[in-house]
Simulated assay, not measured.
Amino acid sequence: MIDRYDWPGGTEAMLRFGPASGPVVVLALPPFEEANRTRTLMVSVLRQLADVGIGGVLPDLPGQDESLVATEDATLADWRAAFAACVATLPQPRFTASIRAGALVDGEADVQARWSLSPQTGAELLRELNRTARSAGTPDGVRPLGMTQGTSGYNRIPAQAGIQGQAEQRLAEQRNPGLLPAQEHGDGVREGAAGAAIEIAGNRIGLRLLDALAGADIGTPDRIVRLESDARAADRRLPYPPPWRRAEPDADPAVAQALAADITDWVRTWRAA
């Protein structure tokens, strides 16, 4: 079912699955291209949760999916505020499930516990974005859009620095600490609420979002699931290739079933504790 939720910046859509009462799992997808590659899979997971009596919600976030907010105007603070507002509309007990950089979004939500598949920090997402830019044929990384000479330190950052280097240098400069990040660019160069943007494989991403990602962490999920190719600490490992690397979206039945079973057992164990 398609529903809507309100947050301080407006109204966004959300998909709802399963019963209206009882436990509910709210899903945070990774942003940009990885959302496109994992959405079909995770909708299948939410449907399987619904079959065993666990509700599911997949909210659109500002600047993502069907949101009317421009992608370049999206900020990490707005994503977090919108996700938390969506969760607050739902009955208890509430849980979150995130994939990759979706773990950057759900930390402010009022939930019983957080589950995450291969959580990704903001710095790791910046590196992914830089690789995406290079693989898309952008030579020497990327450069900001809509900036004029002398408007900010960005015109002095070499393209070879890539996305992460640009964001890190932006944070290090702090030329005018009395101004907010968006104000520092000045009204003359702002293309939207989030200021100038960088284009990466067709997505215009605001510099203010990149600034926030440079230092953004995932907090402490209560359960972390990883794939066998990932050697970092995890509560469980699954023997499947990364679904976010697929060239096309795919709801692999084996992967969907494994993820749904793990989330189901986790929710039931948490409630019984």
Rank of each mutant, 00 (worst) to 15 (best):
L179F: 09
L129Q: 06
R246L: 14
F32H: 10
Q160T: 15
R47F: 13
S152F: 09
A13R: 09
Q164E: 15
V189Y: 04
T89D: 04
A82H: 07
G202K: 06
A182T: 02
G165Q: 03
T269Q: 12
D110E: 12
Q112W: 10
P253D: 04
P93R: 03
E248N: 09
D187C: 05
I54E: 00
G141S: 06
G150Q: 09
E66R: 10
A194L: 00
D6E: 11
A70K: 14
T264G: 01
T151R: 14
I99P: 02
I200S: 05
A50I: 04
T151P: 04
P19E: 12
L207V: 03
R156F: 10
E34N: 12
L210C: 01
F32A: 07
L145H: 00
R131F: 08
P8T: 11
A233E: 15
I224G: 03
H185Y: 10
Q64H: 15
I198S: 03
I218F: 05
T269I: 02
T132H: 01
T75Y: 09
A133L: 07
A84K: 03
H185R: 00
Q48I: 08
T40W: 04
L27A: 13
V52C: 08
A197W: 01
R232A: 14
Q92M: 09
L213H: 08
G192N: 13
M147L: 14
A194C: 04
V87C: 06
V43E: 10
T151W: 14
P243C: 04
L126K: 02
N176Q: 14
M1D: 09
R100M: 12
R80N: 05
D262Q: 07
W244N: 09
S116Q: 04
V111F: 08
Q160F: 15
G195F: 00
A182H: 12
S44F: 08
R134K: 10
V111T: 13
I205A: 05
